[in-house]
Design a protein around this nucleic acid. Structure first.
Lengths: 187, 187
DNA sequence: GCTATATAAATACGATCGTATTGAAATGGA
DNA sequence: TCCATTTCAATACGATCGTATTTATATAGC
């Protein structure tokens, strides 16, 4: 019933895949290059992930889950929409260079095929879904969220270069804008 | 000295290229697919742009110039850093769906090769270069700029979906944050 | 120890990639 | 008219793509 024990570490392969996208761009991610980077054979990659689309899906899922865990951790007990957004901002604020590279890699991989976008759209939409855009405080939170994502994406893509102090100051402003300190939304 | 008159409209080819990236993602952009979409031959594409890298460079350049023109137009006479940022925000605010698709296509194409990123980094850096992050008003302008880019990118990538009213309200807030009305930075 | 099964490697295959080369068509000048 | 030149099409080429198929290896149950 049980066959040969698995010798390929899926996570390590996904790490290698991220590394490839970080260094060579999404276009450089191929089964062959991935196999070489992960120290296994092309067939091993195929066996683990089947198709390339599955591979990319696995990359994005793992990344999304990891970030989501950090967000909820930062959000703490209060899981209201605004608190989640502050958690998201705090998670972005605390992310280091490696995390930025990873995120950029995931984004580029994500944008490869429009099909992949749809599932991620839901993830983003839910962030903003709980906010009432008619309410000024909520709109400020949305603005802060967008600023955080803008900073995060541009930084991840390597399009802006901010010092650690500037980064911290900006996210401090964003958190303030998102209502840090005054937790309750006025409804 | 003068040969066969040109029959290929470079701009139309670039339009087709954008269309391909919009519909099929950056991975779908090939000389062959582009030739088919533009109604010319693969060789024609090669003759016009030489290499694929040149093609992408041309796409990005055209896009950058077009957007830059709108920014300066929106900024008007005042070309101070904050005014430029407000011009940028206004240009983003007024961009329609087609413009979003185009921008998304450019971004995805841009992220294909890390080499392309470098030249664009300068473009973004200059936007923030004139701002003094120690100054609160300037930092607010930076935050507004990042929020605008975040909204723009997420919208372009199809990751968020905002009504026109929400879009307008958010950018109105951003422009206010960037100091609309009080043009002079306190130095 | 044989077999079934899970895992991974080996190999092969058609398709498509980007580009190089060659040839044809259309212009201006001599 | 003949040639030089520009512009594009036709064709070909090696490389690499993703995947299918086949083969080898290591475990568990009988």
């Amino acid at each position: 019933m049980a066959g040969r024990p698995r010798s390929i570490d899926r996570d390590k392969v996904l790490d290698a895949a991220e590394g490839i996208v970080v260094e060579s761009g999404a276009a450089g991610l191929s089964f062959e290059a991935l196999a070489r980077a992960a120290g296994i054979t092309k067939s091993g990659v195929q066996y683990c992930f089947g198709t390339k689309e599955n591979l990319i899906r696995a990359m994005i899922e793992r990344w999304g889950n990891g970030f989501e865990a950090e967000v909820t951790a930062h959000a703490g007990a209060d899981q209201s929409p605004r608190a989640i957004i502050r958690g998201h901002l705090a998670a972005s604020r605390d992310s280091d260079e490696a995390e930025h590279s990873r995120s950029a890699a995931m984004m580029t991989a994500l944008l490869q095929s429009p099909d992949q976008v749809a599932s991620t759209r839901i993830w983003y939409t839910q962030r903003l879904a709980g906010l009432d855009m008619e309410n000024e405080a909520d709109r400020k939170a949305a603005l802060a969220f967008l600023a955080g994502e803008g900073a995060f994406l541009l930084k991840a893509f390597g399009l802006i270069d901010l010092t650690q102090a500037q980064w911290a100051a900006l996210f401090s402003d964003m958190l303030a804008l998102a209502g840090e300190g005054k937790d309750k939304a006025p409804l």
